[in-house]
Every structure is written in structure tokens, then in C-alpha cells.
């Protein structure tokens, strides 16, 4: 009996603290990184790292909202590419400040519109999220390629270096953006919408029966994801200072991995944006560690993927260990097995 209680406590504890593991992982990654790169926390290194991580962090935050709501968004990478293509072709190297502001606003709207298309098909036509956003990812990638057929284009040097070099109060610009995301998430979480989001992701049918506007909530998650992907696209454009229609291709699956590493369940309803942000930074640190640890070039992909698999497996391995130890003393009376989550 005591064992059951213990296990329930553990389950309750891990359920209440979905970020715990991702936080531990982040600290661990940081310590290892510090070992290989002692000046990690100096102003220069911090800035040069964080400005590279930020696009993924932004995209991941949006992806987390979609996944929390029980969906998935395979099209984020293509939205990033569209935004990058638009900015690189429309701004050029000497755009006026008004034009810059106008275009930044425009690409955010484009991102939201792309998300709205996803949301329309998924929540109102009731199509399956993964295949729908896969289809639209082609659609959007095609649009990006149409706008910018071959890599090139430019953005004004001023805004690019603003993104890359500004360090207000000695801290990188990106370190101000991340708390903003977290605060926005915290506020959103407090509203009725935040509750709806978890309800829809947890059990959409039950949510519908309790008068939660399920379709509207699902729709909104894709709009948010599109918006965050557009922010990510802006960040990556300012980072690279030029355009490429396939720049976002790799970001999609990485953002999903980051969300999961951050303690959010892919089935929806469990986790949060804060963990996802930690997950994205952790993935960035993994890459950093590999490049500073002088891993042979041919081995880098393997080592990176292996670390990710181990990180994904760790919570499951801990639980499996706990289950095996538990079942040695007590088995389920009828099935002899642990109840599946």
C-alpha cells in the first residue's frame, strides 16, 4: 500500500512539475558546456550563442502551444522560410525605417495568415493535423521558393547589427526576448483561454461537452504558431542578414523535439511553453558542446542525435526502473501489469 502511495506521489510530483526534468537537463548541458567552453557566460559568448538559439526558441514556443492544444505543426519551417524570403527580397540593404517597420508588420500578418489556413483546415474541416500541416508545408515552401528562387537578397545592415550586437545593460538582446515570451505565456496561462487550451489538448470531446469552444481554441493555436514562426523568421533573417528559401527546413522537426525535451507530451494537454523554451536552449547547448568538445566532423551528427535520444529516453527509463522495482513487490491483481498512461 505504501508503495502505491509512493508511486502516486511520484506521479503527482512529476505531473505538477513537468519542467523539472528539462530544467535539470538544461543545467547539466550548461555545466558540460562550461567545462568545454569556460567563457560561456561572458558577455560575448552569451550573446553569440543566444542570438543563434533565439529563432528556434521562438518557433518552439509556438509549436508548444499547438502541441498543448492536441495538434502538431509541420509547416513552421516553411513559414520561417516565407518570412525570410519576403524580408530579404523586399527590404534590400537600404530600406527606410518606415519601410522596415511596415515589412516587419506585414510578415507577422503573413505568418498569422499561414497559421490561420492550417487552423481552418484542421479545426473547422476536421482534418488530421500532421498530414494537413505537412501538405501546407509544401504549399508554403513553394511560396518561399517562388518569392526567392535562389539564395540572396539582403536586409539593412543597421537592423541586422542591432539584433546581433545590442547588449542593453551588458546582457544580450535575446535575454530580454526570452523573459518576454515567458511572461506572455504566464499571463496567457492565467486567462480563461489558458484553461481552455489544456482542456482541449487533454480531452477535446470532454471539453466540447463542457461548452469549451474547441474549434476556436484549436484554430487559435495554429495562428499563434504561425505568428511565432514569423517572429522566428525575422530573428533568423536578422541573424544571417540574407535570404534562402530553404532556411527554415531544418527547424520544424527540431522544434518538435525541443517541445518534447521540454516536458510537453505530444498527445497534448500536459506541459507548457516555459519547458519548451528550456528544451530549445538545451538543444542549442548540445550542438555547442559538440563543436567545442572537438568532436570529429564525421561523428558530429551521430553524437548529437545520440545525446538527444538519451535525453528523450531518460524520463522513460527512470519510470521503467520505478515500475520494475514496484512490480517486484506488488502486481496488479488482474493484469499483472502497470496501467498504461
Amino acid at each position: 500500500m505504501n508503495n502505491v502511495l509512493n508511486r502516486m506521489r511520484w506521479q503527482y510530483f512529476t505531473l505538477r512539475n513537468p519542467y523539472l526534468f528539462s530544467l535539470l537537463l538544461l543545467v547539466l548541458a550548461m555545466l558540460v558546456n562550461l567545462f568545454f567552453q569556460p567563457d560561456l557566460l561572458s558577455r560575448g559568448s552569451l550573446n553569440s550563442n543566444m542570438r543563434v538559439f533565439l529563432p528556434l526558441v521562438l518557433v518552439t514556443a509556438g509549436q508548444a502551444v499547438v502541441i498543448l492544444g492536441g495538434g502538431i505543426d509541420i509547416s513552421v519551417g516553411s513559414i520561417v522560410s516565407i518570412v525570410n524570403a519576403i524580408l530579404a527580397t523586399q527590404l534590400g540593404s537600404n530600406a527606410s525605417p518606415e519601410k522596415i517597420a511596415l515589412m516587419l508588420g506585414a510578415v507577422l500578418l503573413v505568418g498569422m495568415a499561414a497559421g490561420a489556413i492550417n487552423g481552418f483546415f484542421i479545426s473547422y474541416l476536421r482534418l488530421q493535423p500532421i498530414i494537413t500541416t505537412y501538405a501546407t508545408s509544401f504549399l508554403y515552401a513553394g511560396v518561399a521558393l517562388f518569392i526567392l528562387p535562389s539564395p540572396g537578397g539582403a536586409v539593412p545592415n543597421g537592423i541586422s547589427s542591432f539584433y546581433r550586437e545590442t547588449t542593453p545593460l551588458g546582457l544580450p538582446l535575446t535575454l530580454y526576448v526570452i523573459p518576454l515570451i515567458l511572461i506572455a505565456w504566464y499571463l496567457l496561462r492565467q486567462t480563461r483561454y489558458g484553461g481552455y487550451l489544456y482542456a482541449v489538448g487533454g480531452k477535446a470531446d470532454a471539453a466540447y461537452e463542457t461548452a469549451v469552444p474547441v474549434n476556436a481554441v484549436q484554430f487559435s493555436t495554429y495562428v499563434i504558431s504561425g505568428l511565432m514562426a514569423a517572429f522566428g523568421g525575422i530573428a533568423i533573417t536578422l541573424l544571417t542578414g540574407s535570404g534562402s528559401a530553404t532556411i527554415g527546413a531544418d527547424i520544424t522537426l527540431t522544434s518538435i523535439t525541443a517541445v518534447v525535451i521540454g516536458g510537453t507530451a505530444l498527445r497534448g494537454g500536459v506541459g507548457g511553453v516555459a519547458g519548451a523554451v528550456l528544451g530549445a536552449i538545451t538543444l542549442g547547448l548540445f550542438k555547442n558542446i559538440i563543436s567545442f568538445a572537438n568532436v570529429n566532423l564525421w561523428w558530429q551528427t551521430f553524437v548529437n542525435a545520440a545525446i538527444i535520444v538519451v535525453a528523450l529516453a531518460a524520463p522513460g527509463a527512470i519510470n521503467l526502473l520505478r515500475r520494475t522495482i514496484g512490480s517486484r513487490t506488488r502486481q496488479h491483481p488482474t493484469t499483472g501489469q502497470e496501467r498504461q498512461a
Binding site: A135, T136, G142, V143, L145, P149, A245
Partner: peptide, 14 residues
Amino acid sequence: PDSVRQMVLGGTLL
């Protein structure tokens, strides 16, 4: 062109 091809493929799938 590749861009149109991708758009048509995505649209058809949808």
C-alpha cells in the same frame, strides 16, 4: 518551376 511544383503538390494533398 520547383516552386509551382511544390505548391501544386501541397494543394493537391490538401
